[in-house]
Every structure is written in structure tokens, then in C-alpha cells.
């Protein structure tokens, strides 16, 4: 790991100020993706701004028909939260299935979303549940947030503050995980929300995406059979040593069926 300057601000405003000082400054959340990348010298920031000391960034709040989760809230806290378990069990189970217990004790929702790993779980949760990402500058709808592989709508100097999830009528997330890394080979979140049916797929392509044909079929009839005959073309899907594009296409339909079945 190359050397860097370390800063430990106590407020979002101070973190934003430190971030805009020039140089190649980066935010540090749980470090579960960033520190690994820095060790490999894939990432070499000049300044590291640790969000760990900023109290206002963590915690889970119920706000009317929404659950708001602070950016620094750890995966384990979301998985264990009584509020999330009661109102959006799909989200609690998604968070509880990320990596392993030690990763869940450090990794944060803000870090996961900003990183936008194509095989990460939270992107499917945010896109499938039609959540809104709140930053220190604006609100970004899920449909506008994920831009491509490791790419998001966040501008330089922008900090995720919280993510607000509207409580769905029903939802479930099912993933076919890589048994070694636990990341998604394919993960599907199917939800019936106030703004319509949504089906979000992670792990399969360069970034999370929705499947319009499945959403339409489920809007007509919420049943596993409705999606059983719908497949996503393999030509834009990933092929790697874990799974071919054709196999991923097959898994999308299977995971979607199971998610619809689970979201009773």
C-alpha cells in the first residue's frame, strides 16, 4: 500500500471540505473494498478521509412509509434491525447475506453503493426497491444512480449521507452466490412497490439492471409462473470462470421465479 495522508473529520461538512482540497482524496467507509484495492495498488489516493467518526452518518430511522439508512450503517446492523426485518424483510436478508460476518461487521451501505461492484448485493436492493440516495448535495433516484461498472452518478466531492427505502407491498431477494467470495453470480430482487413492480438483477452484467418484460408480466399477475418463460438475452451478460453468459441468463429466470415465490 502506498503512503497517504489520513484525516478523521467529525462532520459531513468537514469531510466535504477535506475532499475538495485537491490531490486525489478518497473517502474511507468500512474499507472492505477500498483497503483491499489499496493493498493491491489498484487504488492509490493521496488522502484518505475516514467517515468512521461521523455520528450523523449512521443509524436506521423509520420516517413515515420509508426506512432511512445512514451511509455508514454496517451490513450487520441492517440485517439485525428489528425495523428493517419487520417492514422490509427482503432488505434485512439481503444485508445478512453479504460476504461473511466479519465483512458485515465493517462494510457499509454507502461504501457498497459508491463502489457499485457489478457483483454486489445492495445495488439490486436499491434499484429493485426504488430507493433514493441522499448525498450532501442532492437526492438521486435509484434509476439514475447506477451508471456502469464501478460507476455511479456521484460527482467528485459528493458524499452519500443516507439511503431512503419506501416500504414495498412485498419483496424478496434471492442470490446464487459464488461459494468462495459470497458475491452474487446472479442476484434478483423482485418487488411490488407503490410505484409498480420492479425486478432488479445484479451479478450478471457490467452493472445492476431492471427486466422490463418480467415487471410487465408480474404487474398483470404476481406469480412465479408469470416469469418462468421470460429470459434475458445472454449477449450482454458476463462470462467468466464462475459462469458463462448463457448460464447467467438461465439463473436470472430461476432466481426471479424464486424471488417472486418468496415474496408472498
Amino acid at each position: 500500500m502506498y503512503a497517504f495522508n489520513y484525516q478523521n473529520p467529525k462532520s459531513v461538512a468537514d469531510a466535504a471540505a477535506a475532499l475538495s482540497k485537491g490531490g486525489d482524496a478518497k473517502l474511507l467507509a468500512g474499507g472492505q473494498s477500498l483497503i483491499a484495492a489499496m493493498k493491491l495498488r489498484l487504488s492509490a489516493p493521496t488522502d484518505l478521509i475516514d467517515l468512521g467518526g461521523i455520528k450523523e452518518l449512521s443509524g436506521i430511522k423509520v420516517e413515515g412509509n420509508n426506512i432511512s439508512i445512514g451511509a455508514m450503517t454496517r451490513h450487520a446492523e441492517v440485517a439485525r434491525s428489528k425495523e428493517v426485518q419487520a417492514k422490509i424483510p427482503a432488505l434485512a436478508s439481503l444485508a445478512g447475506g453479504i460476504g461473511d460476518r466479519m465483512v458485515r461487521n465493517m462494510g457499509t451501505i454507502g461504501g457498497s453503493l459508491a463502489h457499485n461492484d457489478p457483483v454486489a448485493d445492495y445495488p439490486a436492493g436499491v434499484l429493485g426497491l426504488n430507493a433514493t440516495v441522499h448525498t450532501n448535495k442532492r437526492k438521486i433516484a435509484a434509476d439514475d444512480f447506477f451508471k456502469g461498472m464501478f460507476e455511479t452518478a456521484l460527482a467528485a466531492g459528493e458524499i452519500i449521507v443516507s439511503v431512503s427505502f419506501p416500504v414495498p407491498k412485498r419483496a424478496a431477494y434471492i442470490k446464487f452466490k459464488n461459494p468462495a467470495s459470497r458475491y452474487a453470480i446472479v442476484g434478483v430482487l423482485a418487488a411490488e412497490t407503490a410505484s409498480g413492480v420492479r425486478v432488479a438483477v445484479t451479478g450478471a452484467a457490467s452493472s445492476v439492471f431492471r427486466v422490463a418484460a418480467m415487471e410487465k408480466a408480474l404487474a398483470a399477475k404476481w406469480s412465479a409462473d408469470a416469469v418462468a418463460g421470460i429470459s434475458v438475452p445472454a449477449d450482454k451478460l458476463n462470462s467468466d470462470l464462475h459462469a458463462s453468459a448463457e448460464y447467467r441468463a438461465h439463473l436470472i429466470t430461476v432466481m426471479a421465479r424464486r424471488a417472486v415465490e418468496a415474496a408472498k
Partner: peptide, 12 residues
Amino acid sequence: RAVKSCNILAMQ
């Protein structure tokens, strides 16, 4: 909380 100390900075 159980965490992996190889993936955390001492400063954290």
C-alpha cells in the same frame, strides 16, 4: 464486533 484485522487500518 468480530472483524478481519488485515483489512482495516490501525487508524480506524
